[in-house]
C-alpha cells in the first residue's frame, strides 16, 4: 500500500515491498498530494543495496546483517537523494542541530564524534537545542540561501525533527586533546565537504550537486574544530560558530 511523506518541502509517494519503511517514516507521513514524486524500488535494487550497506555498517561498528525490509529503507533513501539535485537539494553527511532558529552542521568521517558533539550541545542548551537530523540532513538552496532539512533517515539514534532551518555554520570535526576552533576558507573546506556529500550516479545531477555545495560553502560560516568529549567543547564551538559568516 503506497504512502506519502514530506521532507525538505517535497512530497514523495512511496510504493513499498515491505511494511517496515512506513513505520520508519513515522513523523513525516503526509496526506496524498498531486505533486508527489513517485518512488518505487525493485527486489533487484534492494539486493544491490546490500554491499554498500554492509561496508557502511562495518565502518560504524554496527551489525552487518540486513533484512530485505531494512535494505528497502536504504534503497528508497538513495532513490530520493538521487533526485534531490533537480529540486535544489542535496544530501549531506553530518549531525545538524538548531539553536535559536539557526542551524549548525557538524561533519566528519563516521566514528569521529559528530553525534557526540551535538549531544554536548543538547546538554548545554537543553530545550533551546533541537536536533534537525543526526546523520544525513538534506541541504536545500532557496533564493541563494542554504537551509537544513529534517528527514526520516536521521541515524542510528533516530534523532531529528520535521523542520527546515536556515544554515548558519558548518564545522569539520577532528579529534583533539584540547578544544580549539578556527575559521577556514571555502576553498579549504570544499574538498572535505564534497567527501561528505552524496554523489549521484547521473552526471547532470552531480553537476547540480557541485553547484549547490558551492553555494552552501559560500553562504555558511565554515570552521574546523579539534575537540575532545568534555562539555567545554560545546562552549568553544558555539562561541565561534554563532558569529557565522
Amino acid at each position: 500500500m503506497a504512502f506519502y511523506i514530506k521532507t525538505s518541502g517535497l512530497v514523495f509517494r512511496i510504493e513499498p515491498n515491505y511494511g517496515k519503511i512506513e513505520g520508519y517514516c513515522a513523523g513525516y507521513i503526509c496526506p496524498p498530494a498531486e505533486t508527489a514524486i513517485d518512488v518505487s524500488v525493485t527486489p533487484e535494487e534492494i539486493e544491490a543495496e546490500r554491499e554498500g550497506a554492509i561496508s557502511a555498517a562495518a565502518a560504524e561498528g554496527r551489525s552487518t546483517q540486513f533484512s530485505p525490509a531494512q535494505l528497502e529503507i536504504l534503497t528508497v533513501h538513495r532513490k530520493i537523494s538521487e533526485q534531490m539535485p533537480d529540486h535544489g537539494i542535496f544530501l549531506f553527511h553530518g549531525s545538524a542541530v538548531a539553536v535559536d532558529g539557526q542551524a549548525y552542521v557538524f561533519t566528519a568521517r563516521s566514528g569521529t564524534g559528530k553525534s557526540t558533539h551535538t549531544a554536548l550541545w543538547r546538554r548545554k542548551f537543553g530545550e533551546r537545542a533541537v536536533m534537525i537530523n543526526d546523520d544525513k540532513p538534506f541541504i536545500k538552496i532557496e533564493d541563494g540561501r542554504p537551509y537544513v532539512c529534517g528527514s526520516p533517515w536521521n541515524g542510528k539514534h533516530r534523532l531529528g525533527s520535521d523542520i527546515i532551518v536556515p544554515l548558519k555554520s558548518v564545522c569539520l570535526i577532528c579529534r583533539g586533546d584540547t578544544n580549539t576552533i578556527s575559521k577556514i576558507s571555502s576553498s579549504e573546506a570544499f574538498p572535505v565537504l564534497y567527501e561528505q556529500t552524496y554523489r549521484p550516479s547521473d552526471p547532470d545531477k552531480l553537476a547540480k550537486t557541485l553547484s549547490l555545495l558551492h553555494t552552501m560553502s559560500a553562504q555558511a560560516g565554515l570552521y574546523r574544530l579539534h575537540c575532545n568529549m568534555d562539555p567545554q567543547a560545546a562552549d568553544v564551538s558555539y562561541e565561534a560558530m554563532k558569529e557565522g559568516k
Binding site: 571555502s186 570544499f190 574538498p191 550516479s201
Partner: peptide, 24 residues
C-alpha cells in the same frame, strides 16, 4: 561520468558515484 565545476578561483573535476574515482 566526469563532471566539472568552476568555483571562485578553482576548477573542480569529480566523478559520479559509479565511476570508481571518489576524489576531487
Amino acid at each position: 561520468e566526469f563532471v566539472t565545476h568552476q568555483n571562485d578561483n578553482e576548477h573542480v573535476t569529480v566523478a559520479t558515484g559509479n565511476a570508481g574515482f571518489t576524489g576531487m
